[in-house]
Computed example of a mutant assay.
Amino acid sequence: MVAKSYAKINLFLKIVGKTQINNTSYHLLQSRFMRVASLYDTLGFNFNAKEFSLVGDFDCLTEQNTIYKAFIVLLPYVSKEQVKALNHTQIVVQKKIPSGGGLGGGSSNAACFLQVVNRELNLGLDKATLMEIGAKVGSDVPFFISDLELANVEGRGEIITPYNAESKFDIEVITPNVHCSTAEVFRLYAKEFYSTSAIVQTQMESWLQKSNAEILNNNAFSNNDLLKPLLRLHSELESYCQKGVFLSGSGSCFWKKCNAIEYAAKHKEAQ
């Protein structure tokens, strides 16, 4: 069987604090995610393979792949018979979502894997448990498991609140040929841009209550706290910072709103 693994964009991304978990420091965020229906990877599943395997053009070792990580984290949640079934699963991945672009491709792949094997192999896990598993794989995975098109996201990404789906809009994704490291961007942000006074100001601005129209009226720097450290690391991306163009997540991809006619024409060209 074949399943679609969709991309997402961040309408905004604001850092609102830090936390320590198992002696590891994490940034706490507030963001709004929107699923991108026109951009997705394709995952093909074979449940009669000799062993668990991944096939695809990946830019990392198998052990670092989010699907493999999801497979490993999933095992303690299922029975011995279900583990046997999982061990005969092959996943063939066709990538369309740019790696390092801030569009959540790896997280989406992990979520898609968890949802499909849960359904097709009758693992019997509810959505809350799948989201718990997903959170151990990556911060964006719970959003994709939620199946929401538009949601406010908090904490490290595990707190998901539906947002008015009727306020979604068509976008064009802009994909520079640049791979950005999330870890490097956050590391530089923590070192040179993190400010307690800025955090207090951000919390007072009530970003989660802002309408999409308000967000679209801002500039890219106001909407995404990671844009400045990103440009420090990749100055070649500065030319994309134009009016009405916004950064998604911590990667190199930008997006802009487009009307229905523009969207239809762009989507037709891509087919």
Score class of each variant (00 low, 15 high):
residue 102 G to C: 05
residue 103 L to C: 13
residue 103 L to F: 13
residue 103 L to E: 13
residue 104 G to D: 03
residue 106 G to T: 06
residue 107 S to Y: 05
residue 107 S to C: 06
residue 107 S to T: 05
residue 107 S to W: 02
residue 108 S to C: 12
residue 110 A to L: 01
residue 110 A to Y: 01
residue 112 C to T: 15
residue 113 F to G: 04
residue 114 L to C: 05
residue 114 L to D: 06
residue 114 L to T: 03
residue 115 Q to A: 15
residue 115 Q to P: 00
residue 116 V to C: 10
residue 116 V to A: 07
residue 116 V to G: 10
residue 117 V to A: 12
residue 118 N to H: 10
residue 118 N to M: 11
residue 118 N to E: 11
residue 118 N to W: 12
residue 120 E to L: 12
residue 120 E to K: 15
residue 122 N to Q: 14
residue 123 L to S: 08
residue 123 L to W: 10
residue 123 L to A: 08
residue 126 D to T: 05
residue 126 D to A: 06
residue 126 D to F: 05
residue 126 D to Q: 10
residue 126 D to S: 04
residue 129 T to S: 07
residue 131 M to H: 01
residue 131 M to L: 04
residue 131 M to A: 12
residue 131 M to R: 08
residue 132 E to I: 00
residue 132 E to D: 13
residue 133 I to Q: 09
residue 133 I to C: 11
residue 133 I to V: 14
residue 134 G to P: 13
residue 134 G to L: 12
residue 135 A to F: 13
residue 135 A to L: 14
residue 136 K to P: 00
residue 136 K to I: 00
residue 137 V to T: 12
residue 137 V to L: 11
residue 138 G to Y: 09
residue 138 G to M: 10
residue 139 S to E: 04
residue 140 D to Y: 12
residue 141 V to S: 05
residue 143 F to M: 09
residue 143 F to H: 09
residue 144 F to V: 03
residue 145 I to D: 04
residue 145 I to N: 06
residue 147 D to T: 03
residue 147 D to V: 00
residue 147 D to S: 13
residue 148 L to Q: 14
residue 149 E to Q: 09
residue 150 L to F: 11
residue 150 L to P: 01
residue 151 A to P: 08
residue 152 N to Y: 02
residue 152 N to R: 09
residue 153 V to H: 02
residue 153 V to P: 02
residue 153 V to C: 08
residue 153 V to N: 02
residue 158 E to I: 09
residue 158 E to N: 06
residue 159 I to D: 02
residue 159 I to M: 12
residue 160 I to F: 04
residue 160 I to W: 04
residue 161 T to M: 05
residue 161 T to L: 07
residue 161 T to I: 11
residue 162 P to E: 11
residue 162 P to N: 05
residue 162 P to A: 13
residue 163 Y to Q: 06
residue 163 Y to L: 07
residue 164 N to S: 11
residue 165 A to I: 08
residue 165 A to W: 00
residue 166 E to K: 15
residue 168 K to T: 15
residue 168 K to S: 15
residue 168 K to D: 07
residue 169 F to R: 09
residue 169 F to G: 06
residue 169 F to S: 05
residue 170 D to T: 10
residue 170 D to S: 14
residue 171 I to D: 03
residue 172 E to G: 01
residue 172 E to W: 01
residue 172 E to R: 10
residue 174 I to W: 00
residue 176 P to I: 07
residue 179 H to S: 10
residue 179 H to W: 01
residue 180 C to Y: 06
